[in-house]
Simulated scan of single mutants.
Amino acid sequence: MLKRLLAFTILMLGLATAIFFTQKWYLESIEETLSYSINAIYLFHFLAYIVIVLSVELLSKRLPDQVGYFYLASVFVKIGLFVLVFKDTLFADSPMNFLERISIVIPFFMFLVFEAIYCGRLMNAVDNESKSEG
């Protein structure tokens, strides 16, 4: 469990860091300033990733058949928390331009894909273990 979680998180962290710095470099190169902190958005998604994969990992030991449902519910909770935490940014009086909108969407989908891959591999591993036992 710990080895899989640590290896995947290190890989994810490396890729996320590369995308984060590429995104910041691009915004600086075109002299675009965002009306919000991109650091805070990446930090939120990383913390949500840690909570989700740890929860799914622990749940897979107790209720392996419910992991997929839990992951689906956790994505909706994550979206709700994101909207709650960043409501001032998302619902500001002035509309966001394209770069501001895409700068929110990139980390959201990137971490969503990482979480989905991790949970999918975990469910396959749990399924393979249960088949080999039975």
Rank of each mutant, 00 (worst) to 15 (best):
E115C: 08
I41S: 00
Y118R: 04
S29M: 13
Q66V: 09
Y71G: 08
K3I: 05
F20G: 02
L58C: 02
P107F: 12
A16D: 08
F98D: 14
K87S: 14
L54A: 10
M12Q: 07
F46N: 02
F91Q: 06
S29H: 15
L72D: 01
K24Q: 14
L34A: 12
Y26F: 11
Y42D: 05
A18T: 12
T17C: 10
I52V: 15
V51G: 13
E32A: 14
S94Q: 14
V56W: 00
R121K: 15
L43D: 06
L15K: 06
A16N: 11
L90A: 04
S74N: 06
V77G: 04
D88K: 15
G120V: 02
A125F: 02
L59M: 09
S103V: 00
I10P: 07
L58I: 00
D88N: 15
Y69V: 09
R121C: 12
M96C: 05
V56D: 07
I38W: 02
S55W: 02
A7G: 07
F44Y: 05
I117N: 12
N124K: 14
D88S: 15
A40Q: 09
Q23C: 09
G68M: 00
P107R: 12
A48S: 15
L11T: 07
P107M: 13
Y69T: 06
L112V: 06
E133N: 07
C119F: 00
F109K: 13
I50R: 12
F108R: 10
A125R: 05
N128V: 09
I50S: 08
L5G: 08
A125Q: 03
I117H: 10
E28A: 14
L15V: 13
N97M: 04
T22C: 14
L72C: 06
F44R: 04
L2M: 02
D127T: 12
E129C: 05
L84S: 14
H45N: 13
E57D: 13
E32D: 07
G14H: 06
V75E: 10
E129F: 08
I19S: 12
E115G: 02
P95V: 09
M12S: 11
Q66D: 11
K61N: 11
R101M: 12
M1L: 10
I50K: 10
F44P: 02
T33S: 12
E133L: 13
A40W: 03
T22E: 08
R62S: 11
F108L: 15
